[in-house]
Design a protein around this nucleic acid. Structure first.
Length: 561
RNA sequence: GCGCCCAUAGCACAACCGGAUAGUGCAGCCGCCUUCUAAGCGGCAGGUUCCAGGUUCGAGUCCUGGUGGGCGCGCCA
């Protein structure tokens, strides 16, 4: 509908050039927006203000000239010139309602596009180290990352989701030492408790399972505990597997799945880290100083150079990360999106610098990053500090168990990633019925209920039965609902372009509001069957849009509540 | 001190590439269930968009300088 109006304005502009009112040359595509205020019509354009200088006439006069030249059509029922030179378009009822037909015909495909053209995109997210259960912050990453995958899939990309984790190194050693301490009966605070040890209760459970000789099967590994309390390597392998299993269960409960779990250790065993380092040295981007090897990241926009190989011989964390991203590139992902917490934003410059230094013709701004700000958790009116080591902790599992998967996912995706988020557990718990997700799901369930009734009432009923009667829908609430539904493809396209899934969440609230308002004002199944069939078609189109939108957010669309 | 993100109603948050009278939910107040799900609807109230300048037909949005908050600035990850 918007496209049609853009085209009509384009026709008028072409005529203005023919008539010599506008000079030939670069004319921008007319910008057409939905209006905020219904008194401004349905769509508006600022084209007259943009071109007024070029035409050498006041915006309002130019607007009048544009309106005169808009070709004959059935879409626009009225044009007004308003304010400083806006042209407001009122869309004809029939044209506005045509979206109902489009939605019912396209079904689950409504709002999909093939813009991605089947090109491959890799999305890395969560990537938590196996040193503890997933917390709310990881949950935010999981919810946003998965929604990004779904958005990109919806836009015709071939999406590959990946979880990268560190299964070796200092933090994992600390984990193993913490478990060993528990096995030896050493408590946090005792003499002999490891420095930087993990204090959470879950460490005790890992120790108990190890001592009992349990077998754990995680997504990518199965390990049987030897039970040998002196064998640190066994303890470490078991602990990693045990925590991986925990995280897998958390993610499964959250309905987030990955195509691949990528192990940091594999970059060492495949020699990828060593090869990347050698290449950086060969390319002259490194130097030795203080018995360490440095990467001259300042050549690529960093504010200081960074150590690659530590004095004791090991690599710093970003070196395998560079090797990992080279691996992504060599796997053919021309587009890669990394969703991660903003506390890791300093890695961006280093990883990109390392990639540039490899001289592999990797684009400068590659890969893309989506950073989410921190989640603050409030309980009893006080902030809960998240600390894995101290063990004071709000796990993702707790939230899912307490407030439900749908509500948790919605809450974590409904806000812009750039804004800090306060998750008030008391509010989510005690007033879960007031969570916006129920408002949207309720609209969906209501429609399903009406559809069940329609099947009883009308023999062989399907939503399409109403398509020949759409002219019955002349009320404000009906027109308003159809207008909201018609925005769905633009909303999804915008959310995909800007990598902002929260726009979909906000939009769905608008759809639900328009539907509830319509529902309260008009009885859908009335005596007059033409009106009933038309309203059923409109309601069914609404149900389809809500279902499609909720799917992108990874939230269920219940048929009954 | 430097870098990144943020600042919008009592609270939590929206606002597309700069568009017209800045919206939504919760909390508050007043109404609506003999009708397809009241987890709903209608109405009222609530704002100097942190401050000061600038850019222009037009700024919550862009620029400069402040103030306040979060995160980062390890040979930790």
């Amino acid at each position: 509908m918007k496209d049609q109006v853009v085209e009509l304005i384009g026709g008028a502009i072409a005529q203005l050039i023919t008539d010599g009112i506008l000079p030939e040359g670069d004319i921008p595509t007319p910008q057409v927006d939905h209006t905020r205020d219904p008194s401004h019509g349905d769509l508006a354009t600022n084209i007259a203000m943009v071109l007024s200088k070029r035409a050498g006439m006041p915006p309002r006069n130019l607007a009048a000239a544009v309106v005169e030249r808009i070709p004959e059509n059935t879409v626009i029922s009225r044009c007004d010139i308003a304010g400083p030179g806006f042209i407001n378009f009122h869309i004809s009822q029939a044209s506005n309602l045509d979206v109902v037909r489009k939605i019912l015909e396209a079904g689950a495909g409504f709002g999909r596009s093939d813009e991605g053209g089947g090109k491959r995109v890799q999305v890395e997210f969560v990537s938590a180290n196996p040193t503890g259960p997933l917390h709310v912050g990881h949950g935010r990453g999981a919810a946003i990352g998965d929604a990004l995958c779904r958005l990109l899939d919806n836009a015709g990309w071939s999406v590959h989701s990946e979880f990268y984790y560190n299964d070796a190194g200092q933090q994992i050693s600390n984990l193993a030492l913490s478990v060993k301490a528990r096995l030896d009966g050493v408590e946090p605070g005792d003499d002999g408790w490891p420095k930087d040890g993990y204090q959470g209760d879950y460490i005790r459970e890992v120790a108990r399972a190890y001592a009992d000789g349990e077998t754990v099967a995680a997504a990518d590994r199965t390990i049987e505990a030897s039970g040998d309390t002196e064998n640190l390597a066994d303890i470490q392998a078991f602990s990693v597997a045990w925590l991986r299993r925990e995280q897998d269960q958390d993610l499964k409960a959250f309905d987030v799945n990955f195509d691949c779990y990528f192990l940091e250790s594999s970059l060492y065993t495949s020699n990828a880290v060593e090869e990347a380092v050698e290449r950086l040295i060969a390319n002259g981007h490194t130097y030795e100083q203080d018995d360490a090897l440095w990467l001259r990241t300042t050549d690529f926009g960093d504010d200081k150079d960074r150590v690659m190989r530590k004095r004791e011989g090991g690599y710093t964390y970003f070196v395998p990360d560079v090797a990992y991203h080279l691996n992504k590139w060599e796997r053919g992902f021309e587009r890669v999106i990394n969703e991660q917490g903003a506390d890791h934003h300093s890695t961006i410059t280093r990883v990109r610098a390392g990639l540039q230094g490899l001289n592999k013709d990797i684009p400068e701004g590659w890969p893309d990053y989506v950073l989410h700000q921190m989640v603050t958790v409030m309980r009893d009116g006080e902030e809960v500090k998240l600390s894995k080591r101290a063990g004071s902790y709000v796990t993702l599992r707790d939230l899912i168990d307490e407030v439900g998967r749908d509500a948790t996912r919605f809450f974590l995706t409904a806000r812009a990633a750039t804004s800090q988020l306060t998750f008030d557990i008391d509010l989510a718990l005690s007033k879960s019925n007031e969570n916006p997700v129920y408002y949207i799901q309720y609209a969906h369930a209501r429609i399903c209920s009406v559809q069940r009734k329609a099947v009883e009432q009308f023999d062989g009923w399907t939503p399409a039965n109403g398509l020949d009667h759409l002219d019955q829908l002349a009320h404000d609430e009906e027109q308003a609902l159809a207008l909201v539904l018609s925005k769905y493809p633009e909303v999804v396209a915008g959310a995909t372009k800007r990598l902002e899934p929260h726009a979909v969440a906000n939009y769905l609230r608008d759809v639900a509001a328009a539907f509830h308002s319509f529902y309260n004002q008009h009885k859908i199944i009335d005596e007059d069957s033409a009106v009933s069939l038309a309203r059923l078609a409109l309601a069914s189109a609404t149900q389809q849009v809500i279902a499609n939108g909720l799917h992108i957010l990874g939230v269920s669309a219940p048929e009954a509540m």
